[in-house]
Structures are given as C-alpha cells and as structure tokens.
C-alpha cells in the first residue's frame, strides 16, 4: 500500500471519530448544563472546551463561555481546526484522496455526513441541537459500520482501526481528566457529584454498560476504573489501546520485510502503555495521582502517533541497490 494512502486512511478514521466524540460530548453536556446554576454552567461550558484542548484558541475568539458560543466554537467556528465541521471536511478530503481504496458505500456515507453539516440550518441547530446531534452520531456510526462490512480487512483496514482507537483513547482520557478534576472537589454521593458522574459516563456512551457491570451506587472510583481499565467496553482507554496494539502487530508482522526500527518502537510503546494499565490498581491512582497518570498517557499516545508516522507514512527512502550500499545506509 502507498504510504500516502495509509496515512490518509489513518487520518480519515481519526477525524471521523473526533467529529463523533465532540458531538457526543456536546450533546450530553448540553442537556446536563440546562439543569445547572448559572456560575456552574459557565464553568461547565469551559470544561467542554478544555476537553478538546483548544482553550487558548477559544479565549482569543469569544469573550465568555455560554451554550451558544461553545456550541458554535465546537461545531463550525472557522477559527477552530478541530470543530466538527473542520473534522468532517478533513475526513472527507482524506477519503477523497483515496477514493479508489475505500468502498463506494464508505464514500457515500462520508459524503452524506459532510453535506448534512454543511447544509444544515445553523441557527436552528443552536436553538435545539438534539436532532442534529443524533444525525451526526448516526452518520459516523453508519460509516464505521459500512467500513467494517464492506472494506477488505487487510492492511488499510488496520490503519483505520489504529487511527480510530488512538483517537478514542485520547478523547476518553481527556474527558476523564477534566471531569474527574471537577468531581474530585465534590462530596461523594451528593446529587451534584452524581450528575457529573452520569455526564462523564454518557460522554463516552458508557452509562448503561456501566450500570450493567456495577449495579451499585455511582462511585467515582468505579466510574474511573470502568472508563480507564475496562477490557470489554469499546471506549475504555485500555480496550482502545489493546485494539490499537493488535493493529500495529498485524501491520508489523504482515510484511515480507523485517519490522523496521520505527514499527518496532510503536509496538513497544503501545505494549508498555497496555501493560501499565493492565496491572494497575485503581485505588493507587485516585485523588491527586489521577491527573499525572492521565497526562503521561496523553504524552505516550502522542509518541505512538509520531512513531507510526515515521514507520509507515514518512518512511526513509532506502533505495534498492548493491548490498554494500544498503549496509552503508543502515549504519
């Protein structure tokens, strides 16, 4: 597969996932914040922007945090490269550049989704976004469904899986980081704390799955444990990292040439991250220790991204030629 194609598939997948994640975070909190007091609500809207990591950019464009401003910023403000509109545009451009590598169904779905947000009545969405949000979510999930059902599960598919799970893992970590900080200042068991925990779970579509797993009261430690360490829930950090590692493993072994240095590195970094989480006791990282752990995870995720880029997308050109020449170049 062409390096450029692999890179486009990877980013197409990341951007679609990002659009869906941002939409979900917005939906969930839009509803939760309608119930909150004004000062809490401002803080709540700010935390949404923090989740995307684009706080400085927001401050440069908007004077204050409100439902309208934050929604606009996260959905389609031209200054925001991670807005849902920008993500879907990027996803579509990437898909377009590899039109011949993806199935017709995938292309049709991504196009539909793109035109949905491009042509939507924006002020109507800002007044009542619920239906629009479900359309974006359905569109993204339909795209992921047809990808699974219509694309050959070969090399390109693994790059898609890899991109999707790295993106998901990152978003779950960010949600956990921001929301955990808020909940941590509250008294366990109060209605406010419960409300925050529910919002945290719903931001990852984890509320009902969590309920089935832990039928007891909502406890911060259990929610954190579920979102971080579940190996069954498809948006839990550990689940995503394990799946990403499997993809890297398939990519590295499914090849006639020995695993390159860089490919081996991304495999090792992911392996270390998974091992750390697999043997983690949640009690050891509660309270103040949560934030450093999550920061470290984010840093390693960035590292993995770089290593994958170097291993597959920006490969150093080693020209076929006489043996001596190759050895020289490897030194």
């Amino acid at each position: 597969m062409l390096s450029r194609v692999a890179e486009s598939l990877y980013w197409m997948s990341r951007y679609i996932e990002r659009a869906e994640d941002i939409t979900r975070i917005l939906t969930v909190n839009f509803h939760a914040l309608l119930d909150a007091r004004l000062e809490d609500s401002q803080q709540g809207w700010q935390s949404l922007v923090s989740i995307t990591g684009d706080d400085p950019l927001y401050k440069r464009n908007f004077p204050e945090y409100s439902a309208r401003n934050v929604s606009e910023f996260l959905l389609w403000h031209p200054s925001n490269p991670n807005a849902v509109m920008a993500c879907l545009t990027q996803a579509r451009e990437n898909a377009r550049s590899v039109r011949e590598q993806i199935s017709i169904e995938m292309w049709e779905h991504i196009n539909k989704l793109y035109f949905l947000i491009k042509e939507v009545n924006r002020s109507a969405v800002l007044r009542g976004p619920h239906e629009f949000f479900s359309q974006v979510r359905d569109g993204s999930q339909a795209f992921q469904g047809v990808t699974d059902a219509t694309l050959t599960h070969g090399e390109g598919y693994e790059f898609i899986i890899l991109g999707k799970h790295l993106e998901r893992a990152e978003k779950t970590v960010r949600i956990l980081d921001v929301k955990y900080a808020t909940v941590n200042t509250m008294v366990e068991g109060t209605p406010e704390a419960s409300l925050q925990l529910v919002a945290m779970l719903k931001s990852c579509s984890a509320f009902e799955p969590f309920r089935r797993e832990y039928a007891s009261v909502l406890q911060t430690s259990r929610v954190a444990e579920y979102m971080l360490l579940s190996q069954q829930f498809p948006r839990a950090v550990l689940y995503c990292l394990l799946r990403a590692q499997r993809a890297v493993g398939v990519l590295a072994t499914d090849t006639s040439i020995p695993m390159s240095n860089q490919a081996a590195r991304s495999n090792r970094t992911l392996g270390r991250m998974c091992a750390e989480l697999q043997y983690l006791d949640i009690q050891d990282v509660l309270g103040e220790k949560m934030h450093p752990l999550l920061l470290k995870q984010l840093r390693l995720m960035n590292l993995v991204g770089d290593e994958i880029t170097r291993a597959y997308f920006n490969t150093q050109v080693i020209l076929p030629g006489p043996k001596s020449q190759q050895q020289q170049q490897q030194q």
Binding site: M1, L2, S3, R4, A6, E155, L251, T255, S256, I257, Y312, T315, V317, I318, L319, P320
Partner: peptide, 9 residues
C-alpha cells in the same frame, strides 16, 4: 521509477 509503499519501494 519506484513508488513508496508501507513495505518499501
């Protein structure tokens, strides 16, 4: 002429 692929040239 060679093309750059994920598996080399």
């Amino acid at each position: 002429i060679y093309m750059r692929t994920t598996r080399g040239l």
